[in-house]
Each structure stands twice: as structure tokens, then as C-alpha cells.
């Protein structure tokens, strides 16, 4: 891990599902501390792209470097990258058989070999940060969707990652719960966390993003600072997409 290198450097990334070309020669560089929002219609490859970054999907060709570490056939580098890259999922994916606290301490204890007491103190700190400290001894099934997603964020933070990936974190939530999750994400963004966030929450993008990326059919169609992206989209497809998303 070389923390002076770009946080993420993707070059000419290709990914196929059978004959379906999910990612077509995609390239993207994210600096440390940068906040990138990725949007696009469903099936455009945005989730696939961020899932390649921590190798939940294996890419077929091209190059992905995370802080200089090349993701290739070497299992050690995959392990190293996953330690530094946290991920928050659309469906939370909390472990239902563990309490909130156990969810948060599992990986630090097992992977980082943090002593249990230290890991628990850390977990409580992050649970407080996502404003859910009072639920620490409950099981995920006893929490609302918004609470679960905030726990999921805390769980990712407990590994103290350099980068956080968000895969449509609010898509599975009831409307009244979206705000509480977005609030936490805004706080994180303001603290300088490197974030790549796949989302359709354009308000969030406008507020915190350094850069907004629009993907369609496995390619990056447009990338720009939020002001330029929303006020003056250059590409026809982007304009169409924005008109559909913002119409509601």
C-alpha cells in the first residue's frame, strides 16, 4: 500500500458476463480524499465497476490499482486491498445471527487482530458517530432499514478503511429513512473520507461530490464537477437521464 499513489487507478477495465459486455474499456482515477458519485440507468455497470475494486467480481482484462497495489492473480494483494476498502451494500447485509456490536467487531478482531476490548471501544465510537449507540446489543432483525444501514456503515468504518464504497445505499430504504443515512454519509464526506458512491440521490451528489460520473452501457459517458454536471450536461444521454431522475 502506497498512500501517496492515487487511491484508485483503473485503466481499460473489461468485464463480461457470458457474452454480455458489462464494462467496456473503462478508465477512472480517484485521488485520496476525493468524493465521487456514480450514477446511471440500471444495468449500466456502475455496481459492477465498484465491485471490481474490492474483487467481489473478477475483471477480465485491464488494470486496477488501489494505492498502487495491482489487483491481479495474487491472493495476498486482494486481501490487502479488502482490508483498506470498506463497502456498504444496497441490502445492508448485516450478519443476522450476531448483535450490532458483534457485527462491528468481527472483522477487526479476526482480520486486523485487534484485541477485543480495543475493537469494542472502537465499534462503540463509530456506532455513536452513526447515532445508533443505544442499539449496540440488539440484533439486526430488530432494527429498521435506516438503522441497519447506519450499522452497516459503522461496521465498514470499524476496519478503519482508507476508501469507502457505497453500492446504492439508500435504494432499499423507505423514503423517510433515506435522510438519516444520507446525513451520516455527508458527515463522513466532510471529514475527508475517500468515497465512491453509486446512488441516484442527486441532492447528495450536488452537496458533497467533488466529481459526478454518469455511466451507460458499461462506459463512462460524462464526468464533471457537480455544478457543471447538473447545470450544463454535455451528453444527450446524460440530459435524458437527468430529466428522468429529476422529474420526480
Amino acid at each position: 500500500m502506497d498512500l501517496t499513489a492515487p487511491a484508485i487507478a483503473i485503466r481499460d477495465l473489461n468485464k463480461f458476463y457470458g457474452t454480455f459486455h458489462a464494462l467496456c474499456g473503462l478508465s477512472l482515477t480517484v485521488r485520496k480524499g476525493e468524493r465521487v458519485v456514480v450514477c446511471g440507468p440500471s444495468g449500466s455497470g456502475k455496481s459492477t465497476m465498484i465491485r471490481c475494486i474490492n474483487q467481489l467480481e473478477e475483471h477480465d482484462s485491464g488494470e486496477i490499482r488501489v494505492f498502487g497495489t495491482l489487483l491481479d492473480d495474487n491472493l495476498a494483494s486482494i486481501d490487502a486491498v479488502r482490508r483498506e476498502v470498506g463497502m456498504v451494500f444496497q441490502h445492508f447485509n448485516l450478519f443476522p445471527h450476531m448483535t450490532v456490536l458483534e457485527n462491528c467487531t468481527l472483522a477487526p478482531i479476526l482480520v486486523r487482530k485487534t484485541p477485543r476490548a480495543v475493537a469494542e471501544a472502537l465499534a462503540l465510537k463509530f456506532l455513536e458517530k452513526v447515532r445508533i449507540l443505544d442499539q449496540a446489543s440488539k440484533f439486526p432483525g430488530q432494527l429498521s432499514g435506516g438503522q441497519q444501514q447506519r450499522v452497516a456503515i459503522a461496521r465498514a468504518l470499524c476496519m478503519q478503511p482508507e476508501i469507502l464504497l457505497f453500492d446504492e445505499p439508500t435504494s432499499a430504504l423507505d423514503p423517510e429513512m433515506i435522510a438519516e443515512v444520507l446525513d451520516v454519509m455527508v458527515t463522513l464526506a466532510n471529514e475527508g473520507m475517500t468515497m465512491i458512491c453509486v446512488t441516484h440521490e442527486m441532492g447528495f451528489a450536488r452537496k458533497v461530490a467533488d466529481r459526478v460520473i454518469f455511466m451507460d452501457k458499461g462506459e463512462i459517458v460524462e464526468e464533471a464537477a457537480p455544478a457543471a454536471f447538473f447545470e450544463a450536461p454535455r451528453n444527450e444521454r446524460t440530459r435524458l437521464f437527468l430529466s428522468e431522475v429529476l422529474a420526480h
Partner: peptide, 9 residues
């Protein structure tokens, strides 16, 4: 996937 993303072997 969540367990993998947390780096668990």
C-alpha cells in the same frame, strides 16, 4: 459478499 468485503478469509 459482505464478509469478503470486510476482508475475512
Amino acid at each position: 459478499e459482505a464478509a469478503k468485503a470486510l476482508g475475512l478469509p
